[in-house]
Simulated scan of single mutants.
Amino acid sequence: MSLPTKEGATALLHAHVRDEYQRLHAVMVATALEGYAQHIFPGEDPHLWYLTGLLHDLDFEEHPDTHPAPSLGWFKEWNYPEALIHAVEAHAYGYHDFKTLPQTKLAAALLATDELCGIFYAYRKMNPVRYGEMKPASLKKKFKDHGFAAKIDRATIELGCQHLGVDLDAHIANLGRFLAPLN
């Protein structure tokens, strides 16, 4: 089992992902997962959780129709931990014939966090407020409004929350707190 440093993983991300939004999305998800490992699930490896979030969409730009199959192959070839591989595979539940449900806290957290970061980003574009200052009730209202950030798959967020054992309100509040350093 091997993992790159944060710097190495960031260089890998930049080699495969050129879109600035996708890079920011990766950092948002990584930061949120690291927050979960540090504050909600003590004993989990914050570095593993951060890198899982940072690299979860590594192949999306280059292989959108088969994502995340190519990156799963790379991760296996690079001898990345099975926990990372499983989480990346489970985050694609329901897409491109992926049927793997999250079996770990890391996988559930990635599933719950990935799409929700998109709602946070869209909300901030509409209301220039810092992440840590966003009102969870306002974000939940946007979550329920399927016309807002319409491409966000709310069902996967709810499925992730269910497997993580956290309700949506608490998850939104956690993400607001965890993403605050990105302001």
Rank of each mutant, 00 (worst) to 15 (best):
M28W: 04
S138P: 00
L84I: 15
G43H: 11
L159S: 00
G43V: 09
F143M: 10
A109V: 11
D65G: 11
K144P: 00
D167I: 10
A170C: 01
N174V: 01
D59G: 00
K76I: 01
F143E: 06
E44S: 09
L139W: 06
T113S: 11
A92Q: 13
A112S: 11
D57C: 07
A137T: 12
G43E: 07
T66V: 07
G165L: 02
Y21N: 07
L58P: 04
L159H: 06
L106R: 02
H96V: 14
K144H: 11
A122D: 13
Y50N: 11
K144A: 12
G118R: 02
E77Q: 15
G118I: 00
L24T: 14
H56M: 08
L13N: 11
W49A: 13
L84V: 15
M1H: 06
A109Q: 12
F98R: 02
C117Y: 03
N127I: 02
L182Y: 06
E77G: 10
K105M: 03
D114S: 03
Y123T: 07
A107N: 03
K142P: 01
E133Q: 14
P64G: 02
H86E: 15
K135N: 15
M28D: 02
Q162E: 14
I172H: 08
H63Y: 12
P4G: 12
K151G: 12
D45H: 11
H67Q: 08
H96G: 12
N79P: 00
Y50K: 13
P128R: 13
Y95M: 08
A149I: 03
L3R: 02
H163C: 13
F98V: 10
L111I: 04
L48A: 06
W49S: 05
K141M: 15
A30H: 09
L116F: 10
A32Y: 01
E20A: 15
V17P: 05
M134Y: 07
P102D: 09
C161E: 11
T113G: 09
T113E: 08
A149G: 09
G8W: 04
F143Y: 13
D65W: 07
P70N: 09
L179R: 05
H163F: 15
K151D: 15
I172Y: 07
H91G: 05
K6P: 13
Y131D: 08
D97F: 09
H25A: 04
M134V: 02
H96Q: 14
A11C: 03
A15T: 13
N174S: 12
F75Q: 08
L12F: 05
V129H: 07
T113K: 08
L110F: 00
Y80G: 00
P42Q: 12
L111M: 15
D169H: 10
T52G: 04
I85W: 07
I172L: 13
Y121M: 07
L101F: 13
R154W: 06
S138Y: 02
P64Q: 00
E61K: 00
A149N: 11
A107Q: 03
P136W: 08
S138A: 14
S2L: 12
A180N: 09
E34H: 06
A108H: 10
F178V: 08
Y123R: 02
N174G: 01
F41M: 04
L13V: 11
L168F: 14
F120Q: 01
P70T: 04
L116I: 10
T31D: 05
P64H: 01
E82G: 10
L84C: 15
